[in-house]
Write a protein that binds this DNA or RNA. Structure first.
Length: 873
RNA sequence: GCGAAAGUGGCGGAACUGGCAGACGCGCUGGACUUAGAAUCCAGUGGGGAAACCCGUGAGAGUUCGAGUCUCUCCUUUCGCACCA
C-alpha cells in the first residue's frame, strides 16, 4: 500500500480491474432478484455538467449498494442524441450534426468512465442510430394502424425570415430567437398521437405509483386536468342561423351547468369558426380578432391581460328558456380547451363578471349560499359568487343543491337533445411532427395518386442522411431531393417522402425498454424486457416530471395494448434529484454589458463597515468589486458552472462523488462549495492514512469478541452501529449524507482509539473493514484499494453487504435522560433490563432531579423505556 | 389566482415513529509542528451570564407530562400550473 493517497493511480487501477473482468455486464438470471437501476440518459451536449454527475452518482451508489445486497443489478447508459442543439452547432460551425453528436458522445462516455460508474456498457445505445430509431418508425406505423397516430392540421410558430418552424422555447417575446422577426402562427398538417385516449388510465394509475414523489403525481394529475361537466348546445337564433354559417347550435363545455339560468351572453375564442365567419362582414371585428391572434404568446401573460371583447351581432337561444343571448368574441376564451366557447354567467364566474362589468352586460343571480341569506350579485359592488350553493331564479330547477341541479338540468337538456354530461381533459393529443432535420424521419410517403402511404415494414428504417448541414433556414431534408424523391410503395409512381421528423420525446419514451435487449435485431423488444422491467429505480431531474414521464407511461401502455409488453407502468420508484446551485457574481461597468465571474475567482473580504465585499482581479479590469446575486442553477450564461473534468483531475472521482453525496440529500438542491470539496478530500486522506497506519503495524490477529475490554467493545459497537445506520440510510431512506456522516463519526472514533494490543488491533481492523464496505458504493475506487490493503483476497465489488452483529450491538447499560417538567436535568445509567420501578427510583434519586423537585410534590413520573424519565411537579 | 414543498447556528445540513435541538462537514478562534506557511494534528465553537442558570428551531396561539416534529392563524421563500369555462 502506498503511504500517501494518489487518486489518479488508485482510480486507474480500480477501473482497469473492473474493465478487465467486465464486472458490470449482466445477464438475466431467474434465480436472483433483479434490480434495474435507471438514470435519465443525457443529451450529448459536449461535456458532462455537475447535474449529470449528481444524477449518475446517485444511481451508481444505489446500483453498487444493491449489488452488494445480492441483487442482479442492471445499470445501463445511452444517449438522447437527436435534437436542436446539434443543428445549432452545425449552423455556427458548419459541422454535420451527426459528427458533432458522435464526438460529444465519445467525450462524455470517457468522462463517465473516469467517474467510475458501474455501467453495463455493452447495452449502450444512441437514439440517432438507425438500429434504434427504426423501431420508432415501426411502432409509429402500428399506431397508425390502430388509429393512435393520425394526421391533422396544427398551429406552429413560424419564423418568416428563416422560413422555419420554431419551438416554443425559441420564441422570445413573440420574436424568433435568431432573426428577431415577429413570429407568425401557421397551420400545417402534422402527425398526432392520441394520448387523450389514455388520459383516464394515465390519471387513475397515478394512484398506484406509491414509489413516486407526491409532487410529481400531483403535477401529472394537474396536467391531465380532468373535469366533469356538461356539454350544452345553444341553438342559433333564426335571424342569425345563416350568418353564423354553422349548423344548428353553438356548443360549450361547462362544469357549472347549475348556473345555466344565469347565462346572459356567450363568449367565443378569436379563432372560433363562428368568429371568423362573423368577421368577414365586420372589419372592426376582423381587426379585433387579428389583434387577439397576434397577441402575447406566453400563457402567463395571457392570464393577466385585461379582458377584452367585441359583439358579433349574432345570437343564440337559451336551450331551456329560449331567451336570445348575444355572441361575443372574447380574448379570455381559449380555442384549445373545451369547445372554444363558453356561456357567460357573470353572477357566478369571476372572469365573466369582469367581462360583463366592462361591457355593461346583465347579471342574473341564480345561486345562493347554503348557509347565508340570499344575496343578489350586483356589479360592481357585489362581486361574483363562485361557490357551490342552492339554485334560485332557475324555474323548475330552483332550490336544488349543486349536484341535484346539474343532474336535473343535464337530464332536461339530454331530453331535448341539447346537451349531456361529459368529461373534459386539459391534456391534448401529442403533436410529434417537427420540421427539423436532426431527428427520426416519419415513415410516410405522399403519393399524388394514393395519398398518404405508410412505408412498408421491410423498407424500414427510413434512414436519415447524415451528411446534410443545416443553415438555419428551413429543413434541409425538404431541400434534399435525394432524400425526398421516392416511389410510392403502393403504386410505384414517383412520390414525395415525408420530410418532417419526430419530436425527440418519442426517442426517450421507450429507450429504457431497449436496454433490456439492446442487441435484438428483428424486434423492438423481446422477452428479456419482462425480466428487467419495470425499472426498480428511475433517477432524474424534476424538469421531466410532466412531459417525459407522462409520454413514457403512455408509450408503455400503448405497447402493452399492442401485446409487446406485460406491464403498464415502466418505473416503480422515482427519485427526482435537486438542482446543483452555485453563487452568481456579476460586474456591470457603466454602459457596458453585464459580466459574470466564476465563483472560484471571487475573493471575499470584509469591508470597512464589516459587511462582506466580493472582488475579482482581471487583466482588463484590474481589481473590481462585484455583486453577489445569490445562488442559482449552474449555467453557462451566469458563469457559475464547475467542470466535473477539472474536479476529477484535481481531486479524483471519489472526492467528487463523496462531496456530492454528502452535501445534501438527493431530492434537495445542492449548494456547491469548494471548501466542502476540500473537506471531502481531507476525509478520504484521513481514512487512507488510518488504514495505512493500521496495516503498517503488521497483520491484525483474528478477533475474539469474548475477551474484549470496555473500550474495545465500545469501538466494536460503534462500528456495527455505523453499519446498521448506513444500511437503513442507503437502503430504505436514500439519505446518503447521513450514512456518510456516520462513517465519519466512526473514523473519528477509530482516531481516538489508541490501543496497540492484539485485541485492539483486531477491533480496529474490523472497524476499518466496515468503514470500507459502507463507503464502497460511494467512493468505489478508494475502497477497492483499501479493501486489498486490509488483506482481503476477494475484490470489494464481489463482497456481500454484511448484517450488523447483534452481539456487538448489545449493551449492558443504557443512558437515560432525566427531565423535570420537560426540561433536561441529568442522565442516569441503568441496566438494559431494568424494570420501570428501578428506572423511576434511579431518576428520582439523581442529585439534579432532587434539586429541581425540591419540596414540590411530585405529580407524575413518566417513564419511556430505554429513553427518558420525566418528573412532573 | 390555484396547487405543492420548505423556513433550525456564521454556512451546508442532522434530529426518521412527539422524547437529550444543532450529529457530520465547512468556516471561525486558540494551540502544536515548522525558518515560514496553503498542509497536518489537538482543543474550542447556538445566544446571554462570573456562575447557578436562563433563552433558543420564521411569528402567534393551541393540544400534550413533553412540540423543530401534531393542529389552527399569519409571514416569508422556492417550485409547479396559470383566463381550463
Amino acid at each position: 500500500m502506498q503511504e500517501s493517497y494518489d487518486p489518479a493511480a488508485v482510480e486507474r487501477a480500480a477501473q482497469q480491474y473492473w474493465d478487465e473482468r467486465r464486472a458490470f455486464e449482466v445477464r438475466e438470471d431467474a434465480t436472483r432478484a433483479k434490480f434495474y437501476c435507471l438514470s435519465m440518459f443525457p443529451y450529448p451536449s459536449g461535456r458532462l455538467h455537475m447535474g449529470h454527475v449528481r444524477n449518475y452518482t446517485i444511481g451508481d451508489v444505489l446500483a453498487r449498494y444493491m449489488r452488494m445486497r445480492g441483487h442482479n443489478v442492471l445499470q445501463p447508459m445511452g444517449w438522447d442524441a437527436f435534437g436542436l442543439p446539434a443543428e445549432n452547432a452545425a449552423i455556427s460551425n458548419g459541422v454535420p450534426p451527426a459528427r458533432w453528436t458522435r464526438q460529444n458522445i465519445a467525450h462524455m462516455r470517457g468522462q463517465m468512465k473516469s467517474l467510475g460508474f458501474a455501467i453495463d456498457w455493452s447495452r449502450e445505445l444512441a437514439t440517432c442510430d438507425p438500429h434504434y430509431y427504426r423501431w420508432n418508425q415501426w411502432i409509429f406505423l402500428r399506431m397508425l394502424e390502430k388509429g393512435i397516430a393520425y394526421r391533422k392540421t396544427g398551429v406552429v410558430n413560424w419564423d418568416p425570415v428563416d422560413q422555419t418552424v420554431l419551438a416554443n422555447e425559441q420564441v422570445i417575446e413573440g420574436r424568433g430567437w435568431r432573426t428577431g422577426a415577429p413570429v407568425e402562427k401557421r397551420e400545417i398538417p402534422m402527425y398526432y398521437l392520441n394520448i387523450t385516449r389514455y388520459a383516464d388510465e394515465l390519471l387513475e394509475a397515478l394512484e398506484t405509483l406509491n414509489g413516486w414523489p407526491e409532487r410529481v403525481r400531483v403535477m401529472q394529475a394537474n396536467w391531465i386536468g380532468k373535469s366533469e361537466g356538461c356539454e350544452i348546445a345553444f341553438p342559433y337564433a333564426p335571424d342569425t342561423r345563416a350568418a353564423a354559417g354553422a349548423d344548428g347550435a353553438l356548443k360549450v363545455f361547462t362544469t357549472r351547468a347549475d348556473t345555466l339560468f344565469g347565462a346572459t351572453f356567450m363568449a367565443i375564442a378569436a379563432e372560433h369558426p363562428v368568429a371568423l365567419a362573423a368577421a368577414k362582414r365586420n372589419p372592426a371585428l376582423s381587426a379585433f380578432i387579428d389583434e387577439c391572434r397576434r397577441g402575447s404568446v406566453t400563457e402567463a401573460e395571457v392570464a393577466t391581460q385585461e379582458k377584452k371583447g367585441m359583439p358579433t351581432g349574432l345570437h343564440v337561444l337559451h336551450p331551456l328558456t329560449g331567451r336570445a343571448l348575444e355572441i361575443w368574441v372574447a380574448n379570455y376564451v381559449l380555442m384549445g380547451y373545451g369547445e372554444g366557447a363558453v356561456m357567460g354567467v357573470p353572477a357566478h364566474d369571476e372572469r365573466d363578471f369582469e367581462f360583463a362589468l366592462k361591457n355593461a352586460l346583465p347579471v342574473v343571480t341564480v345561486v345562493r349560499s347554503t348557509t347565508g341569506a340570499y344575496q343578489e350579485v350586483r356589479a360592481p359592488w357585489i362581486a361574483a359568487y363562485g361557490e357551490y350553493g342552492i339554485t334560485v331564479n332557475s324555474g323548475q330547477f330552483s332550490g336544488l343543491s349543486f349536484r341535484a341541479a346539474v343532474d336535473g338540468i343535464a337530464a332536461a337538456l339530454e331530453h331535448k337533445g341539447l346537451g349531456r354530461k361529459r368529461v373534459q381533459y386539459r391534456l391534448r393529443d401529442w403533436g410529434i411532427s417537427r420540421q427539423r432535420y436532426w431527428g427520426c424521419p416519419i415513415p410516410i410517403v405522399h403519393c399524388g395518386l394514393c395519398g398518404e402511404v405508410p412505408v412498408p415494414d421491410e423498407q424500414l428504417p427510413v434512414v436519415l442522411p447524415e451528411d446534410l448541414v443545416p443553415d438555419g433556414s428551413g429543413n434541409p431534408l425538404a431541400k434534399s431531393a435525394a432524400f425526398y424523391h421516392c416511389r410510392c410503395p403502393k403504386c410505384g409512381q414517383p412520390a414525395r417522402r415525408e420530410t418532417d421528423t419526430m419530436d425527440t420525446f418519442v426517442d426517450s419514451s421507450w429507450y429504457f425498454l431497449r436496454y433490456a435487449c439492446a442487441d435484438a435485431a428483428r424486434t423492438m423488444v423481446d422477452a428479456r424486457v419482462d425480466y428487467w422491467l419495470p425499472a426498480d429505480q428511475y433517477i432524474g431531474g424534476i424538469e421531466h416530471a410532466i412531459l417525459h414521464l407522462l409520454y413514457a407511461r403512455f408509450w408503455t401502455k400503448v405497447m402493452r395494448d399492442l401485446g409487446a409488453l406485460k406491464f403498464g407502468e415502466p418505473f416503480t420508484n422515482l427519485l427526482t434529484q435537486g438542482m446543483v446551485l452555485n453563487h452568481i457574481y456579476s460586474y456591470q461597468s457603466d454602459g457596458g454589458r453585464k459580466r459574470y465571474f466564476d465563483p472560484a475567482e471571487v475573493a471575499v473580504r470584509r469591508g470597512a463597515d464589516g459587511a462582506e465585499v466580493y472582488e475579482v482581479t482581471t487583466a482588463d479590469l484590474g481589481t473590481v468589486l462585484v455583486t453577489h446575486e445569490g445562488l442559482g442553477k449552474m449555467s453557462k450564461s451566469e458563469g457559475n458552472g464547475v467542470d466535473p473534468e477539472g474536479l476529477v483531475e484535481r481531486f479524483g472521482a471519489d472526492t467528487a462523488r463523496l462531496f456530492i453525496m454528502f452535501a445534501s440529500p438527493p431530492e434537495q438542491t445542492l449548494e456547491w462549495s469548494d471548501e466542502g470539496v476540500q473537506g471531502a478530500s481531507r476525509f478520504i486522506r484521513r481514512l487512507w492514512n488510518a488504514v495505512y497506519e493500521h496495516v503498517s503495524a503488521g497483520e491484525a490477529p483474528p478477533l475474539d469478541a469474548s475477551t474484549l475490554t470496555g473500550a474495545q467493545r465500545e469501538l466494536r459497537r460503534a462500528a456495527h452501529q455505523t453499519l446498521a445506520k448506513a444500511t437503513d440510510d442507503i437502503g430504505r431512506r436514500r439519505n446518503f449524507n447521513t450514512a456518510i456522516a456516520a462513517v465519519m463519526e466512526l473514523l473519528n472514533a477509530v482516531g481516538r482509539f489508541r490501543d496497540a494490543s492484539a485485541a485492539g488491533r483486531a477491533v480496529r481492523h474490523e472497524a476499518l473493514r466496515i468503514a470500507t464496505l459502507v463507503l464502497a458504493p460511494i467512493t468505489p475506487h478508494l475502497c477497492h484499494a483499501l479493501w486489498q490493503a486490509l488483506g482481503s483476497t476477494t475484490a470489494l465489488i464481489d463482497e456481500v453487504w454484511p448484517a450488523p452483529d447483534a452481539a456487538a450491538l448489545a449493551q449492558e447499560t443504557r443512558e437515560i435522560v432525566v427531565q423535570v417538567n420537560g426540561k433536561l436535568r441529568g442522565r442516569i445509567s441503568v441496566a438494559v433490563n431494568a424494570d420501570e420501578a428501578a428506572v423511576r427510583a434511579a431518576a428520582l434519586a439523581h442529585a439534579q432531579v432532587r434539586k429541581f423537585v425540591a419540596d414540590k410534590p411530585v405529580q407524575r413520573v413518566i417513564v419511556v423505556p430505554g429513553k427518558l424519565v420525566n418528573v412532573v411537579v
